[in-house]
Structures are given as C-alpha cells and as structure tokens.
Amino acid sequence: MAAQDSYKRSHVIVIALLIILLFITVIVSFMLGRYSISLKELFNILFSRVIPIDTFWSEQMEVVVFNIRLPRILMACLVGCCLSAAGAAYQGVFQNPMAAPDILGASSGAAFGAALAILLGASSRLIMATAFLFSLLTVGMVFVLSQRTKGNKVIGLILSGIMVGSLFSAGTSFIKLVADPSNQLPAITYWLMGSLSGITKKELALAAIPMAIGLIGLFILRWRINILTLGDDEARTIGVNTNLVRLSVIICSTLITAASVSVSGLIGWVGLVIPHLSRKVIGNNYRYLMPASMIFGAIFLLVVDNISRNLLAVEIPLGILTAFVGAPFFIYLLTRKGETL
C-alpha cells in the first residue's frame, strides 16, 4: 500500500518538475530574440497587461513581445505537445514503439494540401486551412480503406496509411514539379521543411481549438490506451470496447497532428523521440507517460524553435533542426547498454 503511494508520488513529482522546467523554458524563451529587449523592459511589458505601469518602452517592443514572441512561443509549445502526444498515442494504438504521428498519412495529406494551396496562390491562412482539411481527409480515407481490409485491423490501418500516404507524397512531388520555380516552389519547399516563423495571434487562436479538443481527449483516454497495447482480444476481455477507444484515440491524434502540421509544416522526429525519452524517464504507463510526453514535447520544440529563430540572422527551418537533434539522440537511445525498447 505504502509502496504504491510512494511509487505514484515519484511519478507525480517528475511531472511537477517537468511543468516547472517548461515554465522556466517559456520565461527564458521570452528573453531570447533578435530584437534586444532588456529583462526590466520585458517584465514591465508583460505585467503591463495585468497591472497599470507607466510606459517607458517603445511601441515596437510591445509589438515584438505580444505579436511576435508570444504567439510563437505558445505555438511552439502547443505543436511540440501535440506531435509528442500523438506519437505516444499512436504507439499505443499500433502496439509499436516505432509509430509516429504521420503513420496514418496525416503529414503527407497536409503537405499535399499546403502545396496545392500554394500552387493555387492561396493566402497563408487559406494554406493552413487546406492543409488541415487534407490532413483529416487523408486519415479519413485511410480509416475507411482499412475497414475493408481483411484480417488484423491494426495491420490493415498501417498498410492503408503507408499506401495513401505515399499516394499523397507523389501528388506533392507532382505539384512541386509544375510549381512556378521563382516563388511557388521555394514557398512549397520552405513549407515542407517546417517553420513557426510569422505565426500570428489569429493563427494561434484558430489552431488552438482543435488542438485543445484532441489533447483533452487523449489525456482522458490515456488509461484506456494502456489496455489497447495488450492487443484486441485481451483488451476486449478486460472490458474495453477496443474499436470505439481506438477510433476515439485516432480521431484525437489526427485532429492535433493535422492542426500542428497545418501551422508548422512538416516537423519530424518529435513524435518519435519525445515519447521514447518520456518512457525512459517515467515508464510505459500512459497514465503518466501521456502528460509527461505532452510537457516534454512542448519543452523540446520550444528549445529547438529558440535555436531556429536565434542561431542565425535568418530562420532555420524547424524540420531540419529536429532531425539534427532527434536522429542522433534516437540512435543513442537505441544503442544504450542494457536497455530495451
């Protein structure tokens, strides 16, 4: 009895530490930027929205803090949180530690939608909406297709995901081929590499709605995801309606993946590496793994985005950075002595 309590307490402490770490990272991120703002100015600007303070800073500083840094920091946290949560959830649904958020084609679909929108000369907000819709559409197609496959549903889903995903990738390649090379092609290429540059408050508000719905859904279903990892038959005999729970988890994960990818472009590795890292820190029980992955993902992407916007004078695409950080780290995790996945 006491043993269980201390066990539970240690997990809660780890999560509390992660929350504190996230908080610190957010504060530090506010201090980072190409536009130099002193600490005193920064905190006064931030608190001026809560308590009246005499303005001694420039208007442009306020623009930097509220229109540029704030939406970008929050977006980085949300996207990291979503990709990581979706990765963890898919790993459970597919009983496979190598599953990532794009396993059902959400990213390929979003990429196709975005490329198409750029080709047709859409505005950035319309690009975002098209990417989101195509992402949902792709996963919907994959799901419908998998229902028609015979045998193991999970394998049917994975195979349909690979198939439809590569179909949309081919579509994206075709669009790149016909795109105007002087402005559309670089825009598509840049979008595909992933970036949070130029995120506005409106985009943040739009994306936050599906993200919140999906994240809350995954959070409350997190215990059931444990049961899904046991396989269908075993899970059913424990009393879980596997089809319903799996569908719900897929819907939530797709919603947050689609919303993330549509604002940020393709950002790989977060959904694979962060859940793994979280497993190492807090174990495989989704009750703790899910919140830990969410917070870890937020911290990770925020840090990477800080590098992306501060390392060089120009923006470095996020997808490139996450791969640079993610791939070696993953190899390290895989090759560490005495550890198994």
Binding site: Q95, I227, L230, N285, T340
Partner: peptide
Amino acid sequence: PSFNYTVFDMVLM
C-alpha cells in the same frame, strides 16, 4: 506485451 509495463501496472489494468 509491446511495452515493458511494470508488473503492478499490468495487474492494475
């Protein structure tokens, strides 16, 4: 199982 749960987590399921 696909993931290495603790014995207690497994029982709790």
